[in-house]
Design a protein around this nucleic acid. Structure first.
Lengths: 228, 228
DNA sequence: CCAATAGTGTCTTTGAGACAGTATACC
DNA sequence: GGTATACTGTCTCAAAGACACTATTGG
């Protein structure tokens, strides 16, 4: 093997908020190594595609989810020499945030992909292939800090959404309860974060104003998670 | 070429504060492509080494700087298909922060490396190899946000250092003037950031207390850069 | 003395957080 | 009416920023 010859893959940590828990999209491996174990979706980078494109393509191939309309960005690279027992492999990991949409039925290339509760996958008792548990931990930590400084939390919500849904996202990702009133004031006060639709929800109590994602990207000032 | 065969390199954006400006360590390329142009130091990842180790090794090989005692962490991966005209190459970029120490004299493998003012390298009129100008821009932006949330700013200072030196680091990296009094109160108030040595400087005015880097990693609460 | 830099005092403003109070739906 | 959730009012507290003031050195 020439020293330059390294296999390069992209792996995806696709997160959503589902049933009051943070969930991650996992596939069951059909081949060795780690056959039958849980793994993050991913695959080899093609010769002529950018890393971002490879991530979007793998997302469609392995899960049927279109990258358009979800938030997808690079997390970091992992290249510990023994991370893949077959050969030297460096993986470029991506983090995706999406609403809790029904998964397309697996067909063709698409492997069996399903939502798993993040805490279960992070539990050392759960068998997970490669270093994917480590990667998922980093992805979740990244998601937590992203919510503090950027408007990406809304990427978890199906439009249109009420502020309480957005607050629930923050509460679940951060694992902290937030004051509804203060949260509402805060997010509506950030210019360009939420665009009111004029519609209102009709559930239990007083109807809540519904919003769509606005053009703003950054939260200034940030929305720092409470110390405890 | 099998689709898995991709060359993997590490590149380094080594930053320091020098002569009242942010500077980056650049090498002059001795080989094609981009012969004679400025580039970030870097090289191929060896078959049996971790990415972090490869970055530390390249730092020593190309610049003679020991990684011990400077801050080195992964920035992100770049893999645009045409970024290297020879063949498909993915680079894992690292960001290093270090004090303004004299560069070891280039010898043996070490190419001619020198400090360049970051703004000059970012100027489109300056010829820079590969996508290294883009990478440097990302590195600087990352450094700016790192200073807000973490204690790594002190990695730019030669120990022991006065608070004014640390403030100067912040001012240069952020491009903003900071109030000396308020800055002093802020950084001394963060537990574990600065450890007083008991010594004092003796320059122009009143002697300043000298400090070393403390064990703290994060700044809580953060030290957010002023809007303008 | 003056100039220069270090560091403190203190006031103002901003924003977070607690939490009471009001609004508007469904039963 | 009661319950549930949405939102607003208001108070308190923490921290940032402006800036005057004092402290300690070298000329």
């Amino acid at each position: 093997m020439r020293r330059q010859d390294v296999a390069v893959t992209v792996d995806l940590a696709v997160l959503t908020v589902r049933d009051d828990a943070l969930a991650v999209l996992m596939v069951e491996r059909g081949n060795k190594p780690f056959r039958g174990m849980l793994a993050l979706p991913g695959g080899f980078v093609e010769a002529d595609e950018d890393l971002d494109d490879a991530a979007a393509r793998e997302l469609v191939e392995e899960t049927g989810i279109e990258a358009a309309g979800l938030h997808l960005e690079q997390l970091q690279a992992y290249g510990e020499p023994q991370r893949d027992p077959r050969r030297r492999t460096v993986t470029i990991c991506y983090l995706a945030l999406m609403p809790d949409l029904p998964l397309p039925v697996a067909g063709g290339d698409a492997a069996a992909s399903r939502w798993m509760v993040v805490d279960d996958v992070l539990d050392p008792a759960t068998p997970v292939a490669f270093d994917h548990r480590l990667i998922l931990g980093d992805a979740v930590e990244r998601a937590r800090t992203m919510l503090e400084h950027r408007t990406v939390g809304a990427a978890f919500c199906t439009e249109p959404f009420a502020i309480s849904e957005l607050r629930r996202v923050y509460e679940i990702v951060w694992g902290r309860r937030l004051d509804p009133g203060n949260f509402s004031r805060k997010v509506t006060g950030v210019d360009g974060f939420l665009v009111p639709t004029g519609e209102h929800s009709r559930d239990g109590g007083r109807p809540a104003a519904l919003y769509r994602r606005g053009p703003a990207v950054t939260l200034t000032p940030p929305l720092l998670r409470p110390a405890r």
